[in-house]
Computed example of a mutant assay.
Amino acid sequence: MGQALKQLTMSMAYIAAEELNFLWNLAEVREFDQFWQYGIKHGRSPEQLIIEAAEYFDRDEDEIIILVICRKRKGKI
């Protein structure tokens, strides 16, 4: 791909939610899984757990939602 075409393609690209942080270290992910499973076991709703996890992990609720989707798809929660 020529440089001009590459620049044009990149200038037309849209990166969704680039202001959010979707990186988690493995210890945080394991802690999140335990946090989530404990909350569900004790009657917390997913909506409530998202809010609580955002506060606990000092993350945006949308970052928590994406982690929930990822962990659910992998069968971890």
Rank of each mutant, 00 (worst) to 15 (best):
A13D: 09
A13I: 01
A13E: 02
A13H: 02
Y14D: 00
Y14Q: 00
I15V: 06
I15A: 02
A16I: 07
E18C: 08
E18K: 00
E18I: 02
E18W: 05
E19K: 10
N21F: 02
N21W: 08
N21E: 07
F22Q: 04
F22A: 01
F22I: 01
F22N: 02
F22K: 01
W24Y: 04
W24P: 00
N25G: 06
L26Y: 05
L26S: 12
L26W: 07
L26V: 14
A27F: 09
A27T: 08
E28K: 03
V29Y: 05
R30Q: 10
R30C: 12
R30P: 03
R30H: 05
E31G: 11
F32E: 03
F32D: 00
F32W: 01
D33W: 00
D33N: 13
D33R: 12
Q34L: 13
Q34A: 10
Q34R: 07
F35K: 01
F35S: 08
W36V: 08
Q37V: 10
Q37G: 05
Y38C: 11
Y38Q: 04
Y38K: 04
Y38D: 09
G39M: 09
G39Y: 03
I40N: 08
K41R: 12
K41H: 14
K41G: 02
G43T: 05
R44W: 12
R44F: 15
S45C: 12
S45W: 13
S45F: 10
P46D: 02
E47M: 15
E47W: 13
Q48F: 13
Q48P: 10
L49Q: 10
L49R: 04
L49G: 06
L49H: 09
I50H: 10
I50K: 09
I51Y: 14
I51N: 15
E52F: 10
E52I: 14
E52T: 12
A53D: 09
A53N: 15
A54W: 03
A54L: 06
E55H: 15
E55C: 11
E55K: 12
Y56K: 07
